[in-house]
Amino acid sequence: MKIPTTIRKILALARKESRDILQNRIYILVVLVQVFIIMGAVGLVAVASVASDPALLDEIGVTSAINIGLPQSLNGSSLSQYLEEQKLTLNYYNSTDQAKTELGEKLVAVVDLSPTGDVLLNVDTSNVFYSVVSTKINEAADKYNNNKSLKDAGLNETQVNTILNPVNFEIVKVNQDKQVPLALDSPYFVEVIYGFIVPFILLLPFFLASNIVTDSVVGEKERKTFEVLLMTPLSSYMVIIGKIIPILLFSLIQSLAWILVLNLLRVPIYNPVLLIVVLFFMGLAFIGVGILISMLVDSTKEANSAITLVLVFATFILFIPLFVKSEIFQGGFNFIPTVLMVKLAVSPRIQPEIMLYLLPTLILSFLIFVGTVRSFRHERAIRL
């Protein structure tokens, strides 16, 4: 089948732009850096989730390595029993002062009783497990205080146990064959990964490409080839399309690769096709802005400074709604592309209004594209 002349001309320009991009060593380095960013981001969230979740620490057996110091007088007491129930390792010393000498080295915390029977806690706040240890010791102290109050009220051991443990709660898991293969079963992990890391990672190729794409026009000016480009037998629309296609295609391929990487890291991403559609229009806007800026300035340095300011502003607009919980603004936030990406990524079920939420992004991308073409046409008219 014979390819129309117009398409052949666009493809020829696109191939030329592709070669320029692939010969740019910085761009190749940027792609490799993204892999380390993804691994590091997921890893840091996983570590933070485990370090802040007592249940996860118990599950992987980390809390058994957390050492707590107590005076020998508490050995066998109800307080020590409650601390053992928290799966903490107890170390007994002749005195509290002796235990404190190892606080911050071997011990994370030292527990004692005051003369009035109150639980005293000394904890090393520089330890990464400080918050978890505090939570566990507070739970043990609450049980101890309740136990003491009930016994002081004249109740026997059986009555105390009945009040403190009124219900035996057991979780029965069903449909485990349909369970989502998530890396960590942690609310914090899910919230941070899907609420920030996933949209950030998928948009990362377009953020980084926006700086690279500025070279597509301003680079031509610096190399004194811009006038040659203006004299080519291509319409302004054809030139802009030819310049946008390569970087947009490379960025979409990267985002698709990062979706596969996230799935391998057990962060399942649903509705990848619709996500790519959203990314296509967002990428069209980012790259269009990059080309538009590069036509308004005369040097790569100016273009990179301008696009950096645009990206800072775009980051604020795109990511702040992910952290703001407001019923007043929620209706408007639904139209923010990153919020839409989160909704698509977390569930296989697609809401009917999804395409409506995409409409502002589509319109904005189209307007930026038209504005870029008009600016290029104006530049062409002045120079020729």
Rank of each mutant, 00 (worst) to 15 (best):
I7C: 01
A55G: 00
E302T: 07
L234M: 13
Q159N: 10
L11N: 05
S52K: 12
P348F: 01
S365G: 13
D112I: 12
I307C: 01
T158G: 06
K173P: 00
G371K: 00
A140C: 10
T361G: 12
A109M: 07
L120K: 14
V108S: 12
L275C: 02
E59N: 12
V228Q: 09
G331L: 07
N122E: 14
I28M: 13
S326E: 03
L79M: 07
Y270A: 08
M238F: 01
Q23D: 13
L296C: 06
V62S: 11
E105F: 11
K148C: 03
S52R: 13
G154M: 01
V239E: 00
I350V: 15
M341W: 03
I60N: 11
D152Y: 04
K301M: 11
V62P: 00
E84H: 11
L384V: 13
L384S: 08
F329H: 01
P54C: 08
T5C: 03
G288F: 06
I259C: 09
E220S: 08
G219S: 08
T158L: 14
I163L: 15
N138S: 15
P71Y: 09
A14C: 04
L279A: 04
E157Y: 08
V192E: 01
I38K: 06
L90Q: 09
S52H: 09
S365W: 02
L56G: 05
V312T: 12
P199A: 07
D20R: 12
S131F: 12
A12S: 14
S326R: 06
V342F: 09
P352E: 12
S95W: 09
I247M: 15
A345V: 04
V35I: 15
P4V: 07
N334P: 00
K325F: 08
Y82K: 09
T135E: 14
I37N: 10
D215H: 09
K224W: 01
E17M: 05
I276P: 00
N146A: 15
S294N: 04
T162W: 02
K148H: 10
P54N: 04
F376D: 00
E85S: 10
P272M: 03
E59F: 10
K143R: 14
I68S: 06
Q86K: 15
W258A: 13
G371A: 03
Q179E: 15
K243Y: 04
Y194N: 04
G242T: 02
K148R: 14
L264M: 14
L11R: 10
L182Y: 06
L79T: 08
Q159M: 11
P115N: 07
I328F: 15
V128W: 02
R383E: 05
M295A: 11
S235Q: 10
S186E: 02
P181N: 13
S78H: 11
N156R: 03
N75W: 00
I293Y: 02
V31K: 10
K343T: 10
K136P: 05
L309G: 12
G242H: 02
N24Q: 06
A314G: 02
I37P: 10
V373T: 01
